[in-house]
Design a protein around this nucleic acid. Structure first.
Lengths: 355, 355
DNA sequence: CTGAAAGCGCTTACAG
DNA sequence: CTGAAAGCGCTTACAG
């Protein structure tokens, strides 16, 4: 027996199915389905039938059940998004992550895709991979994949289309998009060097993130260019989080030979460094120059306005969406990292050293 | 014939189903299902069987197909989100909308719900309602519902749980959450009045949005309190968008008796007003005071820092999520608007009038 | 041109 | 304690 359905005053079922449409049109559901989906293009459906089906669907306010449709193998027209690294709530409070999401959603919208945000925290690779293969999504965007995560290969094995963001996944045969971290770190470091700084510290991001390591390597490489090496006392480990930036800066400033400039691996860290300097009574940029990375919206509004390396977060997110959509549409997408070029934005937080 | 499945080197199907698990455990799928879901709690399953099923599931890396499960009537554990008013891409570039989304995602995460962002633009009510009833989502959060939209009743009719955000939907029997727009507009206007302003203009938001109308009404009501009425010449119509704020401010400043203060219906409008004033060589707050509404992150970083009415966007989004989740869990949620109290944040964009 | 049937992968009564 | 069967709402070959 069919379950009771809600009916409104007009006597039309609130939720009518294909069966209802077919019945009202006086035909079978297979035909109704093909009319509604415009399939059976060669072996046509009679004009009369077609019209009756369309009319019935309209009258009944028919809308297909996406679940049932997807279960038969149809695409869901939905992109999944999972942030690596942090708890979802934190990730979402993170301007970097949120701007990328914005780009993702924007580009997805342009191609008629919806976006499913998986809130399960990342750090459980087994769970994450399981979630993502729940078939609700045609493919997945993985943001800030920790280098030690095994989710990517696990997803690839399942044949789920994946695109990585802010991390290169080419070793898994997965396309990804990222900023050229090395180039970004280089221009930041060169800027400081050209200003005349020699005692430069780098506030590194999470060791587990490729971007953090690439930026750090390029920082060291650029120092080497002028015969400098990273001061061991400056090489404090931490994360991309503000607290870490604050405490490390406090430590750096307490050193016998404190740095005259800091290159922070992201703007959040840079902002924290500014705060720490202020608390120590150190003036930025007069006594301490600071360069960030990302150029989040707040960067230009800090006091002083932050000199930083801009990465096009919106475009990065958008491009990731596009790559994934291309993949889903069967287009050939090379499994390589699409690198966006960063740009140095010089504002008020950097100046020549005092002596 | 069963379709070919991908197999990896270990010979385990990449995507194994309940059937595979049951086969490996040597039992039927019904039992496998009940073990995996921990159902049949009273009429127990033998310990031995239970263990075999669990082991098989683990070995095969079984993960349920969410589609199939949902099709049988199980909850999808997913909240749908749809923004009213603007194109999705625009909505997403909008700090207001994005902060609310942040709150939504955060609270959803706490209860184990995922969030599905529907990118289809709102303005097509028929389509929107159709989309939302695709059963992929247990309920829907409707943000900034235009007052002329018929989507809400249409959804209600379908029995789809709905919660409105930044718009009161109680007339449809739907709970919603919003800031107390009238109170917000009142404290903003009173602030200006107390400063001594008498020629005050209001930059109204979209006429189709309840929030815009409520703020405008309360603005007029507060003026009336001291025997003032809104100057007809100041009552320019427009939207919540920056361009509209800019052009209207330019118009206002060109008036024979320009306002000495502007209360903008949101911070984006206020920011645009500041820009317009600057372009006209009018100093804020010396020659023109400006109050905003929202307190988006940028507000405190503008030049001058914006005096504005703070609404707790994160909490509003979070509370909306919670209400919807309560609804989904069968709890009793009254169909009324949960109002958050706004707070005046006095910063640098307001001062007494010159004369 | 059209429809009955099988199948997508699950869960839920209902019989054993 | 356990399993065969029906059903969720669709689509897709396959027969008429």
């Amino acid at each position: 027996m069919a379950a009771q359905r809600k009916t409104n005053t007009s006597g039309i079922k609130a939720q009518s199915g294909l069966k209802d449409v077919a019945a009202r049109a006086g035909i079978g559901i297979a035909t109704a389905s093909s009319v509604l989906n415009n399939s059976r293009t060669n072996t046509r459906v009679s004009q009369a039938t077609r019209e009756r089906v369309l009319a019935a669907a309209k009258e009944l306010r028919y809308h297909p059940n996406a679940l049932a449709r997807a279960l038969t193998g149809q695409p869901t027209k939905t992109l999944g998004v999972l942030f690596g690294l942090e708890r979802a709530t934190v990730a979402v409070a993170n301007p970097y992550a949120f701007t990328v999401l914005q780009g993702i959603i924007g580009a997805a919208a342009e191609s008629g895709y919806n976006v499913m945000f998986y809130t399960e925290p990342w750090h459980n690779a087994a769970v994450s991979a399981g979630l993502l293969r729940d078939r609700r999504t045609d493919g997945v965007l993985l943001i800030s994949v920790p280098t030690d995560a095994d989710v990517v290969p696990s997803l690839v094995e399942l044949g789920l289309p994946v695109v990585g963001v802010s991390s290169s996944c080419d070793r898994y045969g997965v396309p990804s998009v990222d900023v050229d971290n090395a180039a970004g770190a280089r221009i930041a470091t060169e800027h400081l060097l050209q200003l005349g700084h020699r005692r430069i510290a780098h506030l590194k991001g999470d060791d587990a993130l490729e971007s953090a390591n690439h930026r750090h390597d390029a920082f060291c490489g650029t120092l080497a260019t002028v015969g400098l090496i990273e001061d061991e006392a400056y090489a404090l480990h931490g994360s991309f989080e503000a607290e870490s930036g604050f405490s490390r800066t406090i430590e750096l400033l307490a050193l016998p030979y404190p740095p005259t400039a800091i290159f922070a691996a992201n703007d959040t860290l840079a902002q924290a460094a500014i705060d720490a300097a202020r608390q120590r009574g150190i003036s930025v940029p007069n006594q301490l120059s600071i360069v960030g990375f990302d150029d989040i919206p707040l960067a230009s509004h800090l006091t002083p306005p932050l000199t930083t390396v801009r990465q096009p977060l919106l475009e990065i997110g958008a491009e990731a969406s596009r790559l994934l959509i291309n993949l889903l549409q069967g287009k050939d997408v090379p499994a390589q990292t699409c690198l966006f070029q960063p740009e140095l934005v010089v504002r008020g937080s950097t100046a020549p050293p005092v002596d």
